[in-house]
C-alpha cells in the first residue's frame, strides 16, 4: 500500500514539475517587445506603397503583400529568433512571412525572410533546432 502512495505522490510531483519547467522563460518581456518592434520596423522599411513586394515563383510576377497583424508567438532558433507576421495579398488571402532575427548590440535585425514558405520552419522545428521560447 505504501508503494502505491509513493507512486501517486511522484506522479503528482511530476505533473507540477513538467508545466512549470516549460513555463520558465529565458527571454524577458522587454526583449520580446523589442523583437516585435524590430520586426515592425523592418517591415516598415521594406514597404513599397504600403506593401511588401515579393516574386511569385509560379507566375514569376512581383506581387504585393499588405501587412495586417503580428503573431505574438516568438520561436527560439539557437541564439536567434523566429517571428511571424500575417500579410494579405491582392486576393485577400492571408500570407505569412517568417522573419529570422538576430541580436545586434541592443537591438535586433532580420537576417532571413521566408515568404509564404513554411517548409524551412517545419524542417527546423522537426529537427529540434527551432523551439518555443522557454
Amino acid at each position: 500500500m505504501k508503494s502505491i502512495w509513493a507512486v501517486l505522490l511522484f506522479a503528482v510531483a511530476l505533473g507540477f514539475a513538467a508545466p512549470s519547467a516549460d513555463a520558465e522563460s529565458n527571454l524577458s518581456l522587454d526583449d520580446q517587445a523589442a523583437l516585435q518592434a524590430a520586426m515592425q520596423r523592418h517591415i516598415d522599411r521594406v514597404l513599397v506603397d504600403g506593401a511588401v513586394l515579393y516574386i511569385d515563383r509560379e507566375s514569376g510576377e512581383a506581387r504585393q503583400l499588405h501587412p495586417v497583424t503580428a503573431h505574438p508567438m516568438i520561436l527560439a532558433y539557437g541564439e536567434h529568433f523566429v517571428l511571424c507576421f500575417d500579410f494579405r495579398d491582392e486576393d485577400g488571402k492571408n500570407v505569412p512571412i517568417d522573419y529570422y532575427m538576430a541580436r545586434q548590440d541592443r537591438s535586433y535585425v532580420v537576417f532571413h525572410t521566408a515568404v509564404a514558405d513554411r517548409t524551412l520552419l517545419k524542417e527546423l522545428m522537426g529537427s529540434g533546432r527551432v523551439t518555443r521560447l522557454k
Binding site: L29, Q32, Q36, A37, M39, Q40, A70, P72
Partner: peptide
C-alpha cells in the same frame, strides 16, 4: 506574448 507583441508593434 500578446502583451509584448502588442506593445512592441504599437511602439514600433
Amino acid at each position: 506574448a500578446s502583451l509584448t507583441a502588442r506593445v512592441g508593434n504599437l511602439a514600433a
